[in-house]
Design a protein around this nucleic acid. Sequence first.
RNA 1: GCCUCGUUAGCUCAGUCGGUAGAGCGGGUGGCUGUUAACCACUAGGUCGGAGGUUCAAGUCCUUCACGAGGCGCCA
Length: 456
Amino acid sequence: MEGPAMIQRTGIDKVLSGGSTGTTVTIYGWVRTSRSGKNVAFAALNDGSSVQNLQVVFDREAFGDESLAGLQAGACVCVTGTVVESSGEQAVELAARSLQVVGPVDTDFPLQKKRHGLDFLRTMPHLRSRTNTFGAVFRMSHHLSLAIHRFFDTEGFYHIHTPIITESDCEGAGETFRVTTLPAGCADFDQDYFRRKSFLSVSGQLEAEPFALSLGKVYTFGPTFRADPSDTRTHAAEFWMIEPEMAFYDLDDNIALIERFVKFCASYLSEKCAADIAFFSEHYEKGLGDRYRTLEEGFARVSYTEAISILGSTSGVFSSVPSWGDDLATEHERYLAEKHFGRPVFVTDYPASMKPFYMFMNPDGKTVAACDLLVPGVGEIVGGSQREHRLPVLTDRAVAQGLDLSVYSWYLELRRWGTAPHAGFGLGFERLLMYLSGMENIRDVIPFPRTFGKMY
RNA sequence: GCCUCGUUAGCUCAGUCGGUAGAGCGGGUGGCUGUUAACCACUAGGUCGGAGGUUCAAGUCCUUCACGAGGCGCCA
C-alpha cells in the first residue's frame, strides 16, 4: 500500500536562516512582487513564516513567458529549486527548476505591492494577513499568547477556564451582551435555555476567585465581551483578557507581579520576534526600541491622591484639572505615563466611590486597594486590586452599589468559609499587543475585529 | 451618544478664486535591464459617496443622509 501523499515543503524562514545553500528545496508561498529581465525573472515569495521574502530567480528561456505570467502579485505558487548565494541585497535566493501556479489571481486582487492604508486593509480581514504588517502582528500575537502561559506556569499558576456564559450582568466592568434562545420579543426567561437570564462574560474574575481560594494561584485567559458603546481605538466588543487571581497576595504583591509579568512578555518577544519588532520600529513606531528599553527598568508608582496633586500643579496643559474624587481623564492618564514619568506607571488607591464593590477598603475608609497600569501610547492596560475578603465590608459595599445579593450568594459565601486575603488583575491582551508592537488601533491587532457598530 | 475631519480611477492622492477630470502605482501592450515597491514608452480605466438646493455654470458653495477616521466619556 502506498502511504499518504503528503505535501513536502520547506519554510521560507528556514531557507533564509542559512545553512541550506546548495540543497534542493520545495517552497510554497504567495507572490509579493515579480519583475522580469532579459535572461532572468524574479519573484519575491512569502509564506508567512517570516517578514522577509524569499527571492526566486527564473531562467526566462527555460520557463517561457507563458509560464512566468503566472507570477502575479497574490498568486500562490510552488517552486522547486536550489538554494544559492545571491549576488544582490539578500544573502541567499532560490534558483528555480520548476514552477507550478497553485492558485492564480484574478486581476482585481486588491492587495498591491505598494503600501496600503490600514483603514483600507481593515475592510478585508481575510486578506490583510498577507501583508508584511499583519503577518508581523499575528506572528507576534502568537508568541505573546505563549509568553503569557509560560510566565504563569513558571510562577506556579494554574490555568482555569472560567465560563463564557454567565449569570451576573454587571460587576462595574461594562455592559453585557444577552444570550438567549427565546424568539424575538419574548421576555419569559423561565422558558429560556438556562431558565433564567444569561449573558456573555465581561470578566472571569468572580469565577476565578474560588479557584484562588483553593489552588492558590490561578489565571484565566479567554474571550471577554463588552457591549459598551465605546467607539475608540482602544475598545473592542470582543477581546481577550488575562485575569490572574492569587490567594495571600496584597496590593504590593499584586503590583510586583504585574510588573514582572509585563517585563517577561517584553523580553520573551524581544527574543522570539526580533525581525517583526524591527519591522514595526522602522514602519510604525520609531520609539519602539526605547519602549522595550524602558521595560527593562522599574515602573513608576503613585497613589491616586499624589496623582491629583501632580496634575493640579501642572498648569495650562489640561482642558480640565481634576480634584480629589474625580475620574482621571484620558489627557491626565496620558500626561502621567508619557510626560511626567515617561514609562509605565501604576496609579493606586482610588476613591472607593469610583471602584467596584469587591475591592479592598483601605484603613482610611475612603480609598480602595486598586492599581491601574498606564502605559505610554495606549493608556490603561491593567486594572487590578486586592479583593475585599471581609464579609461585612463586602456586603455593605454590594448593597450600597445596589447589587442583587442573591446573584452573588456563592461569592459572598467564600468570605464565610475560610476567607483569605487575595488579589488579582485584568490585563487586556490586545492592548498589551498594541503596546509591544506600536500598532495604534485595536482593530489592527485582532484578526476579525468586532467593535461598536462594526463587524469587519 | 457628542465634537472634528474626510469620501475624486482598482490603490495612494492632487484638483487654485465656482468655468466641465489629473498624477503615481496597479491592469494591458511594447522596450530595456541580475532586478530589489526595478525602469522607460504607449494604452484602457471616473454618475467626483447618495439625494436635494444656490448659480448662466458645482469635484469646489449650502442642506441632508450614508459610510469611514480621529478625539471625548466608559473601560481592559
